[in-house]
Nucleic acid binder design. Sequence first.
DNA 1: ACAAAAGTGTTCGTCTTACACCCATGC
DNA 2: GCATGGGTGTAAGACGAACACTTTTGT
Lengths: 308, 308
Amino acid sequence: MTRGRPVKVRLNAVILAVRDERPLLLTVAAGDGAVDALPAGVLDADGDRTLELALRRLVREQAGLELGYVEQLYTFGDRGRDPRERVLSVAYLALVGEGCAAPAAAGARGAAWRDGYALFPWEDWREARPAALDRVIGPALRDWASSVAERQERVAINFGLGGSRWDPTRVLERYELLYELGLVAERARDRQERSGTALGQAMALDHRRMVATALGRIRGKLSYRPVVFELLPEAFTLSRLQRVVEALAGMRLHTPNFRRLIERGGLVERTGAMATHTGGRPAELYGFRREVLRERPAPGVGLPRSAP
Amino acid sequence: MTRGRPVKVRLNAVILAVRDERPLLLTVAAGDGAVDALPAGVLDADGDRTLELALRRLVREQAGLELGYVEQLYTFGDRGRDPRERVLSVAYLALVGEGCAAPAAAGARGAAWRDGYALFPWEDWREARPAALDRVIGPALRDWASSVAERQERVAINFGLGGSRWDPTRVLERYELLYELGLVAERARDRQERSGTALGQAMALDHRRMVATALGRIRGKLSYRPVVFELLPEAFTLSRLQRVVEALAGMRLHTPNFRRLIERGGLVERTGAMATHTGGRPAELYGFRREVLRERPAPGVGLPRSAP
DNA sequence: ACAAAAGTGTTCGTCTTACACCCATGC
DNA sequence: GCATGGGTGTAAGACGAACACTTTTGT
């Protein structure tokens, strides 16, 4: 076997929570301090039995946070990802309850919880169709794709423009397209050019790409795995559940149908208790119903195919 | 940052094709020659621009095969995966047409195409419910799970036993459970014990786990991405398409409904040509219809929830 | 003629979506 | 009382599963 220079291996954590109807991301200060970075560290070849345990250790050390749900996201290894050296980064996605994401609960090293949609303003369709799409992105895409069929198709599929629908899960594809077009700050930085348009908040290295991967992954997973419950307390109201799903999906759902889907799908069960001070009528408190895993092969909340 | 011993990085390829209604896997001779291994190699930190390109190069060198569809599968990094040293292995899944998988078309180094279900006999439900399930696996699982609720749940979910349905995508979970129970040869080998039950053909290191990951992934992907077409020629009959899907899914489908699903879903278009010598009435030849990608967010063939 | 595979029609039940409406609390 | 959010009923429609049945070849 040929053997080149050794490659360094790093682990990265995309840690998400939802609080006040906003998806939050745990960040630490980057080396140069100018932008945020993801918690990261190196695998201890002797100490860490598995990659996942290494990640948990690392997040514990850096942010004082004990992770619950963790899944491997993707391994990034392109040359030039890190201008200093060739690194392989194994990225993980972790979900924590909103209790962990208390405003003060940031540990050492400038750890902080950032609004996820500050990174991807074009991904939040809850209030309205994001303004950036029509003001900046749309024109730039049209310009770029003009009279190149393949580009037009790519734009249509990923941004739901030419008769296609907006697919909430294509977060990464959209980010990468915007990167190629030079609409995000990372592109100019990576090429050492003067920066032009800079949509959304930039992050260190390719960390924003990792977060895009994570958001896309969890949006997809919502509909076939009961992952939302990792972000909620033991007991919750259905509307609270709906708000969390909406925050992740970046779109509003039809309340009455959402309730029925969840209840008839057997994902939750009544606890008997009630939530008061809801702003209106008191709401029943529900809990995740584990048995659903036995009953249905792919239990999830299912995003609508059309906007509500 | 703490820095332990450096970790080696390897790439592995799970290359699948379907031929004669059987999923085939490209293997090479393992170091000791006793079992098969997956094509593998090392990333060239200077030469390879991306991991995917490194993988393509590697497969070209080792098996003389030019890959088409490639996707990253998973990164394996547990300690003890390779008894010799701590290695991180980034596994990729590749799909090639049956032309590449010609019986003779194995390159150097003892490359060969193996029947995928020789590795996982319990995964092929096309002819009948696999015999091993009732003869060996069922009793062993019941024994293991007896009077431990969590184990019973895990068995039910993954093997479709206690009121749950068989979920074709849970290939990895099933393999890992059988590993834990000592029903596959790798378990005894890894623990340097005398081997007992040895279901299915073993592979080197944790390569069979990688193949299980790949099979589960592609089974899942069938229903929301048009991946089958990577395994078919440009023009094909609907029944040929059905056979390929069935080979991957490990189950039979209801022919008339399958046809309608595919046609109504807009996944294919008539080519006008006909296939003769089909054994009966000549069949129309179809081709993949690229436009679906614009029209539908998740185009795929959709496996049935119940057996036909 | 008959076997074998291709291909069509129709029915039924379930799941999705949308619309309309009633209920219980705080202020 | 009325605004606000919680909660229910029901009907139209899309979709998947199952059944029966016709068509076109090779032998």
